[in-house]
């Protein structure tokens, strides 16, 4: 789960709040680095390809490849992948995020071009400037500091606004959200409980603890289960019966059923500190 501060209300035309999770700055940096590596890989592969297929004037072909190829890749890569149906470059796909328009409308070509053209100024302009100056040996300390400072402002810009927007996102009206496909977890309440619990035992916990228990059950780590089972048994004053997993599953189902019944009556209980529901 993402931090609550990165969660944004997003109401569909049908009137349901889908609650989008914004991608964190770290995720986005990682996605960008992965994309850079991929691009470099493509360039290197093409270079090797040209070197092996005897092209006439090989050096010139390689020179053109790095001039034009680097430019086309750097700009085309992001634009091409983000205008596709998934709205994500390979790096973003790996990190489980995609680009969407902030207003929830279609992601237009103009928006994608705008957000990616800005990257030239955010990252590549100062770095290439610095690179050229360093190569010709005239990069003095001031210039280096300026280029790094410039990059730094844009680089850390996403950290200084609530929505983790990069300059390009701001201009293009887009943001990057998490979309992780996932299978539906198994049904923990499908089996009728074998054990019966007293009202007092079921009154110990609220929804927060129920969902923590759900996580433990889905995690299925024996040591965690043993600890939790021991804690519940001690609190409910139940004897140990040697079957921690079975006990926890039964307790989960019973607690869930009870809390859901109370929920239907409008008496939700957020956690164990909330007032105990009426008997």
């Amino acid at each position: 789960m993402a931090a609550a501060s990165l969660s944004r209300a997003f109401v569909t035309p049908e009137g349901v709040d889908l609650g989008l999770d914004l991608a964190s700055a770290g995720t986005r940096a990682a996605a960008f680095l992965i994309d850079l590596l991929f691009q470099l890989g493509v360039l290197v592969l093409l270079t090797i390809g040209i070197a092996y297929i005897g092209v006439v004037r090989r050096m010139e072909a390689i020179g053109i490849l790095w001039l034009l190829g680097a430019f086309a890749l750097r700009n085309g890569w992001f634009i091409l992948f983000e205008t596709g149906g998934r709205g994500a470059t390979p790096g973003k796909r790996i990190m489980g995020v995609r680009v969407v328009a902030r207003d929830g409308a279609r992601l237009t070509g103009g928006a994608v071009v705008a957000r990616n053209a800005m990257r030239e100024v955010e990252v590549f302009l100062p770095l290439s400037f610095l690179g050229v100056q360093a190569a010709s040996g005239v990069a003095d300390a001031f210039l280096t500091l300026f280029a790094l400072g410039w990059s730094g402002i844009f680089l850390f810009f996403p950290l200084f606004n609530r929505d983790r927007l990069r300059m390009g996102d701001l201009i293009a009206g887009t943001w990057v959200v998490r979309v992780v496909g996932g299978a539906l977890g198994s049904d923990l309440g499908a089996v009728r409980p074998q054990r019966h619990f007293s009202q007092a035992a079921l009154d110990l916990y609220g929804e927060y603890e129920l969902q923590a228990l759900e996580e433990v059950l889905r995690g299925a780590r024996p040591d965690a289960m043993a600890t939790v089972a021991a804690a519940i048994r001690a609190k409910a004053e139940l004897p140990a019966d040697g079957d921690d997993a079975g006990f926890l599953h039964d307790y989960y189902a019973a607690l869930c059923a009870r809390l859901e019944r109370r929920m239907a009556l409008g008496r939700r209980r957020a956690d164990k500190h909330a007032a105990r529901a009426d008997r």
Partner: peptide
């Protein structure tokens, strides 16, 4: 509104989000 199965709600949220962007956001 009626279930406390966190996995179910999470699953439906991500499914609806993905479907939304394919239906409304696709180019």
């Amino acid at each position: 509104a009626s279930s406390l199965d966190r996995a179910l709600v999470d699953y439906l949220e991500q499914l609806c989000t993905r479907a939304y962007f394919q239906l409304y956001g696709v180019t």
